[in-house]
Simulated scan of single mutants.
Amino acid sequence: MTTEGIIYGVVALSVVAVIVAGILTITSIRLNTVRRGALNPPTTALTMTGLYGSVTNAVLRRMATASGTESHRTGQRFTVIVDESAMTWWRGSAQPTKIATFPLSTISDVKGGTTHYGRITYQTLFLGVTVLDKTYELQLRLTGPKGITYASVAQREDYVADLWSRVAATNPGEDV
């Protein structure tokens, strides 16, 4: 095989890889839109879209093991709904599957920061969630409001403020 043939082969494989990655991303965004429609959260709920993170899945698995419940992976994109009493994580599309539910009273800390994967920086919420007297740091990589783009620092800080106010409302008189 000639050098020119190798170069054409590498270019062709690169083009195919980009097309496949684009199709997978578009499919993930579409499934996220379908899932959010199926869940139909109340307008008063805080609704966020999270992005896959291996650390997030590992911590969710440890928390499920500690509480004796079944562990579910998040998938590439997932939905988190926070109402007046709980934070619930969902995956799937037209028939969403519950990943986990945490009463807001078990959340002891909410911080904003960043995580990295390769050259990509993600705006991330770091949540202190207590399960059976042990607190776990759970990461939630954020997307923008519609689940398509990455969240900005301002959007992350809005989520932190909104979530903190909901946590504080469930723990009146406590310093959260």
Results as ranks from 00 to 15, higher is better:
I7K: 06
G22Y: 05
L46K: 01
A45I: 00
I6R: 13
R36F: 02
Y8W: 14
E4M: 08
P42I: 05
V10P: 01
V10N: 04
L39D: 00
G37T: 10
S14K: 06
L31A: 09
V15H: 06
L24Q: 15
V11F: 06
I23N: 07
G5T: 12
V16T: 13
V20M: 08
I7R: 09
V20T: 11
T33C: 07
V10E: 03
T44Q: 10
T33G: 12
S14C: 14
V18H: 07
V11K: 04
T27G: 11
T44V: 05
G37H: 08
L31Q: 10
S14W: 09
A38W: 00
R35C: 08
T43S: 15
I26E: 12
P41S: 07
V18R: 08
N32G: 10
L46N: 02
L39V: 07
V20F: 08
T33I: 09
E4N: 12
P41Q: 03
V10H: 02
R36I: 05
P41H: 04
T49G: 02
I26L: 13
G50T: 02
V11Y: 04
N32K: 04
I29N: 05
V20Q: 07
I6N: 11
M48N: 01
G5A: 15
P42L: 06
R35D: 01
P42W: 04
A12T: 12
L13S: 15
G37R: 10
V34Y: 02
V18G: 10
R30P: 00
G22D: 09
V10Q: 02
R36Y: 05
V16E: 08
V34C: 06
I19D: 10
P41E: 06
A45Y: 00
S28D: 14
T25E: 15
R30N: 14
P42S: 13
T47E: 10
T33H: 09
T27D: 13
I6M: 14
L13G: 15
R36V: 03
L39S: 03
A38V: 03
V34W: 01
T27F: 13
V20S: 07
V11T: 11
L24N: 14
A12V: 08
A12H: 04
A38P: 00
N32M: 07
P41D: 04
L31F: 08
G22F: 05
T27N: 15
G9V: 04
T47M: 04
P41V: 01
T43P: 03
I26A: 15
T49K: 00
P41C: 04
G37E: 12
T49P: 00
A45G: 03
V16H: 09
L46D: 02
N40I: 08
V20L: 11
T49Q: 02
R30A: 13
T33K: 13
L39F: 05
T49E: 01
Y8P: 02
Y8R: 15
G37Y: 03
V11N: 06
A21W: 11
L46M: 09
S28Q: 08
G50C: 01
G22T: 12
T33R: 13
P41N: 07
S28Y: 00
T47G: 02
S14N: 12
I29D: 03
R35F: 01
A45M: 03
L31S: 06
T44Y: 05
G37V: 04
N32C: 11
R36E: 08
T49V: 10
I6V: 15
I6W: 11
T33Y: 05
T25I: 11
A21R: 10
Y8E: 15
V18E: 12
T47S: 12
A17E: 09
